[in-house]
Design a binder for these strands. Structure first.
Lengths: 131, 131
DNA sequence: GTAGCTGGTTTCCTGTAGGATACTGGTTTC
DNA sequence: GAAACCAGTATCCTACAGGAAACCAGCTAC
């Protein structure tokens, strides 16, 4: 529902002293906004991180590994992530049904990014504590 | 369909190789949560990205370079970022007063992370478009 | 004197993300 | 029969992020 954004790149094409800063900037910002949209919210990134560490994981198990998340939110976010091709959902026809979630190869491309986020958080934490 | 292998996560056997997953995971997740808290919300990351590209930037100029942000939100977020040591605010006693915002060296440590986010967004965009 | 620039603040309003809680429906164990 | 586990749904509710618009004070140029 986003990205109907019209950017008038030609709006003021009569001799610009500087570049068209806003448009120029917007072009840089948009991809970042895309990522934020996909991974935004309080929990999605943590879910991915959890799956990164845990590999294939069942629903309840995942919920336990992310302290504070409720079933509803986890369920919703998992759906979102699945629709975006980040994770897969596999149902096993076992006694009490089991469902396993796993990152897709595509989802795994988030690894570098997420580890970066985590690492920065660690540094930040050190900094706060040592103040 | 009978007796597929059950996953005995609580196998009655002696101390399992598996660590205390929840606690272990939480320890991994917390730094990421810290980062998300600092940079969370719709705009903060974009502000930092804007300053990364623009260098020292004045308020209105910054607002123009981030399409869609309102003055109020920009003002609030800038305060937050300043309090967290990510940016500095400098007031110049000129004719109409001018204020410039700039990343601190600490704020600049976010560069790698933010570029990573942007880059992933670009790949994601490609993927969406080529579907 | 009035219109514009600067960098904001204040007020009001709304949407929705996310929390709490209860429930389903099947299966195994006691 | 009761209780516990699984993977969720359904409902209800609230807090707060964020948007729109008006406003402020100081200065300048016309």
């Amino acid at each position: 529902m986003a990205s109907n954004k019209k950017i008038d790149q030609k709006a003021s094409s009569t001799s610009m002293p500087e570049l068209d800063r806003p448009a120029e900037c917007a072009r840089h910002l948009m991809p970042a906004m895309d990522t934020l949209e996909l991974l935004g919210g309080k929990w999605k990134l943590l879910i991915v991180l959890g799956l990164l560490y845990g590999g294939k994981t069942r629903f309840k198990q995942l919920q336990k590994s992310i302290p504070g998340i409720t079933g509803k939110v986890l369920s919703n976010d998992l759906k979102d992530l699945e629709q975006n091709g980040i994770i897969t959902r596999t149902v096993y026809d076992t006694s009490p049904i089991t469902v396993e979630y796993e990152l897709t190869p595509y989802g795994r491309t988030l690894e570098k990014l997420i580890l970066e986020i985590r690492e920065w958080g660690m540094i930040h934490r050190q900094r706060i504590l040592s103040e």
